[in-house]
Amino acid sequence: MSESTPIEIRGLSKVYRTGFTQARKVQALSGLDLTLQPGTVYGLLGPNGAGKSTTIKITMGLVQASAGTALIFGRPPSDPRSREKLGFVPENPAPYEYLTGREFMEMSAALVGLSPAEGRARSSELLEQLDLQRAERLLIRKYSKGMVQRVALAQALLGRPRLLILDEPTSGLDPVGRSQIRDLIAAERARGTTILFCTHIISDVEAVCDRVGVLVRGQLVREGTVSELVSSQTSVLEISIEGVGLERLTEAMGKPLQARVAADGRLLVQVEVADRERFLGIVLQRGGRVLSLQGARFSLEDLFHQALSEDASRREAA
């Protein structure tokens, strides 16, 4: 329960009651444990309905947990002080559309506790940083989706937060808009800001996150760094060589090898991790050269699908 830990979640559960009589129960989260270490970018991945937004809403104090605790810098979400060092961008952010970009920023600055002068200065700085200064006098209702997303991000940065919580920040954006948001996340990470990044866009997670958690049906089914998660699933290496033919290698290995020839003539051979040393020895003994060696591509997307199919199998078995 340290004040320096940005987010500490223990045994968090949420049951929504729906229907006219509130009799129907929907389990959105079950016993979630999650800790964010300072300075990390944590990607919370999961399909729609996995509980990502519920986790964020409980953390932000927008929804009350049915069981368990969530602490932000050691404080419960019900304490407004827990949000003093926090910036938040919800999914599909909706700033007041009857305000101009600048009015919205200055109002948000006052809510963060900045003085009017500080608020004006910080708003100018962020509007410029997010390329909104030309639209600052325009009503938000006239903004494009990308501009709304940027102004929402700008307001989250007003108080120079130590923790940023971003719920689907790149959803619905074009490639340029997504790239801008990714750059901004990278810049905040460089500043030492801890970021909880919630999305179902896997390439975004791969691009910006240090650690990843995969949430399926309210439970954390995988957690680790991107490379840990991917390499734990990699049992095959792709070795790029030249100067020796596939036939000689197959003969020396004594078993068939999967290989293809690259456009520049290199031979790309797939080798089991267990056979790595033996294969490399054979290549070198036969006068070949090893150009590169890497784990065969098992993407986060593959991992994500694997987690989903495992969950489906578990449910079928149950």
């Binding site: 827990s82 949000r83 938040f88 919800p90 952010p93 909706a94 948000s108 929402a152 307001q155």
Partner: peptide, 17 residues
């Protein structure tokens, strides 16, 4: 309904305030 409340309550502001 419009979810504007999410951005406002995302600030260090109590609901009664």
């Amino acid at each position: 309904e419009r979810k504007t409340i999410f951005l406002t309550l995302g600030k260090p502001l109590g609901r009664t305030s």
